[in-house]
């Protein structure tokens, strides 16, 4: 076996290792500019038929909270919905819904049919508030501490694994007032 015939293989091994490392990284995980920053200034009316709208002040009550960006037209939202209901039952923190670019009648039907886990809802009909929150795909989930600072942002549907390793421990740490080791 002459060595030159091994060159393609050697190059491929290098590329393969690089790709394997690349796979463990997430290109979408743009180091979020919002983490550690206060939530943006906004005030939204409630979704039709609900009483409580959502605004900046509601996220600065001294109690940590979860903000879930959802829409009735979004199938992954439907997939993660049972987990949001489960998180609600844990009663760790209030969960608020940011209803993104949705039709008022559709979202009411959606919440009535699947269950409403949200303490407050904000109807962001034209998506302007979503832009301030840096939303670029639905669903997204934010964890906000009692002072209204964004602590964590999850893009895409929540999985059981995300709840167990990220959201729940983080909320427990925040409630206990200790520094969290959870990586977001």
């Amino acid at each position: 076996m002459r060595l030159t015939y091994l060159v393609p293989l050697a190059l491929f091994v290098v590329i393969g290792i690089g790709l394997a490392i690349g796979l463990t990284l997430n290109p979408r995980e743009i180091p979020s500019a919002l983490i550690g920053k206060p939530v943006p200034e906004f005030s939204l009316p409630p979704v039709q038929g609900r009483d409580h709208g959502l605004s900046t002040a509601d996220l600065k009550t001294g109690q940590p909270s979860v903000v879930n960006v959802f829409a009735s037209w979004c199938v992954p939202c439907r997939v993660e919905h049972p987990l949001i209901m489960a998180l609600k039952r844990d009663n760790l923190a209030p969960i608020h819904g940011l209803n993104y670019k949705d039709d008022p009648a559709d979202v009411v039907k959606w919440l009535n049919q699947l269950g409403d886990p949200f303490t407050r809802t904000g109807a962001d009909r034209n998506g302007r508030v979503g832009i301030d929150w840096g939303v670029y795909g639905v669903p997204e989930t934010f964890v906000v501490d009692g002072n209204g600072q964004i602590v964590c942002k999850h893009v895409g549907p929540l999985m059981q694994h995300d709840l167990d390793t990220k959201i729940r421990p983080l909320l427990q740490d925040l409630a206990a007032g200790r520094a969290s080791k959870v990586k977001c």
Binding site: Y5, L6, P8, L9, G16, L19, A20, L23
Partner: peptide, 19 residues
């Protein structure tokens, strides 16, 4: 990636021996 390694790696190994 595993598939890529099997297909490309495998064929390049074969290449190194037979070419």
């Amino acid at each position: 990636l595993l598939f890529l390694v099997l297909v490309v790696g495998g064929s390049l190994v074969l290449y190194a021996f037979r070419a």
